[in-house]
């Protein structure tokens, strides 16, 4: 018993309880659910919406309003679609920890199922982009070279040549995209989170998006190649200049000291 009470304060405890609760709800639902298939889908959808609404009231409503209509603290979520919710919540940007110029990426506290329920609820508020299928964002299906071209046309101005990120006005910034889940890249392009503009399918087709993801996977993933050697952060001349001064000239100055130091004398007092 003591052990259990000690673990009650564990950060994951809430999650475990939540999972058990969800499993229980699901189990109960399964027991009492009607058996018709089409009906089941529909009701499971509406159930998800219902569950999502509950989560929404706890985690989101204080800023976005109880009906997602928005308030002075957060924008309206009517019509942002499931993709926006999936992006914002899975990357931990939402719920916001504190109001600031920009919601930073942080560890996500919801399960994928909860996020799906939340997304279903928000999607029910008004039509908006749905969460993409894996076939849409799988980097393997994209054309890297074309993606690079498109990335430089639409994205590099904020995110840098290879997606290392950059500064915007008043302390806002375009984040580093290295290692971001391709699904989230896709959702970000489609929905335009926060100050990022959106790139709807008519302006940047689904193929275009996939190509861009393929390019980012090539230049920014774990396996990204840097043929010339260590990449110094991919930040361009600033880091190169700093490196040339500190390590290039620095090493050479150490050598000058060696060259001109007096040689050891035989008679050392």
């Amino acid at each position: 018993m003591k052990k259990l009470s000690a673990r009650r304060r564990h950060p994951l405890a809430a999650l475990v309880v939540l999972l058990i609760a969800l499993a229980a709800t699901g189990g109960l639902y399964a027991t009492f659910a009607p058996t018709g298939k089409a009906q089941a889908e529909e009701t499971s959808q509406s159930l998800a919406v219902e569950e999502g609404q509950k989560i929404f009231r706890v985690g989101c409503a204080s800023c976005h309003g109880t009906g997602g209509q928005g308030s002075s603290d957060g924008p309206s979520l009517v019509g942002v679609g499931a993709a926006a919710v999936d992006f914002q919540v899975s990357t931990g940007r939402m719920p916001l920890q504190q109001q600031g110029v920009q919601a930073p990426k942080k560890p996500n506290i919801y399960t994928q199922k909860e996020i799906d329920q939340l997304a279903a609820y928000v999607a029910s508020l008004g039509p908006g982009p749905a969460v993409p299928e894996e076939s849409q964002y799988d980097p393997a299906g994209g054309d890297v070279a074309r993606g690079g071209d498109l990335f430089r046309t639409n994205c590099a101005q904020c995110h840098n040549f290879t997606g290392k990120g950059g500064a915007l006005t008043d302390g806002k910034y375009a984040p580093n995209i290295d290692g971001v889940d391709p699904k989230h890249m896709y959702e970000a392009m489609q929905t335009g989170p926060q100050n990022m503009p959106s790139f709807p399918d008519k302006l940047l087709t689904t193929t275009d998006k996939q190509d861009i993801i393929a390019y980012l996977d090539e230049v920014g993933g774990d396996e990204a190649e840097s043929p010339g050697g260590f990449s110094l952060g991919g930040l361009g001349p600033v880091s190169e200049g700093l490196f040339a001064w500190v390590f290039g000239l620095g090493a050479l100055v150490v050598l000058t000291i060696w060259i001109t130091a007096r040689s050891a004398k035989a008679r050392k007092s």
Binding site: R152, A156, Q157, G165, G166, A167, P237, G241, A244, W245
Partner: peptide, 14 residues
């Protein structure tokens, strides 16, 4: 018509 953020010259023109 294209550009990337972090557009800087080499250090001596900084």
């Amino acid at each position: 018509d294209l550009v990337s953020t972090g557009a800087q010259p080499d250090w001596y023109m900084g």
